[in-house]
């Protein structure tokens, strides 16, 4: 049986991709296997752990629950797109500084969820941070240092905003 393929047009981290994909290919597999962006992780494949969180058109989504064809025409941001070792994103810096990374498997998804929050609001309350991260499971940290890291990153955001308005 020849599998039917669908043509999709997806922008990932600012780069346009045009690919033929199977109708049942998830966005997660598209990112990891077709594009080689393995920073996005699979922890459960059922939308229950958040390890595969990416930002699609400004919203945090579980990429294991989105089909690549559903992402047609969308802008997707992954962990690889928000910072590099030479130019880390404030959240990446804060996660290192606060020791919020242990095994690191939840980290990319956690950072992407936090980014959606901070992009909207740079002075969140602790409860708002916890709420925003509550699709993301972490088994190593008890969340203490992750919450601290998001608070620290929020301060970076505020400073940046202040500097840019000066």
């Amino acid at each position: 049986m020849i599998e039917e393929k669908n043509f999709v047009n997806i922008t990932v981290n600012g780069i346009k991709y045009q690919e033929n994909v199977s109708p049942n290919l998830t966005l997660l597999k598209f990112l990891r296997e077709d594009l080689g962006l393995t920073g996005t992780k699979e922890g459960c494949g059922n939308g229950q752990c958040g390890a595969c969180t990416v930002i699609m058109d400004g919203k945090a989504v579980n990429s294991c629950l989105v089909l690549a064809v559903q992402a047609n025409g969308s802008h997707v941001e992954t962990i690889e797109g928000i910072g590099t070792p030479d130019k880390l994103h404030p959240l990446q810096k804060a996660f290192i500084k606060e020791g919020a990374v242990q095994c690191g498997f939840c980290t990319p998804g956690m950072i992407m969820s936090a980014k959606v929050l901070l992009d909207k609001k740079n002075n969140p309350e602790e409860e708002e941070i916890r709420e925003a991260l509550s699709g993301n499971l972490c088994r190593c940290t008890g969340y203490v240092k992750i919450v601290q890291a998001v608070k620290r990153a929020a301060d970076y955001y505020k400073k940046k905003k202040k500097n840019s308005s000066l």
Partner: peptide, 18 residues
């Protein structure tokens, strides 16, 4: 800071599944 921090926060760390 952990010596592998940067690899982990940038998604560059290679796990078995990668």
């Amino acid at each position: 800071p952990r010596i592998e921090s940067i690899a982990k926060v940038t998604g560059m760390a290679k796990y078995t599944t990668d």
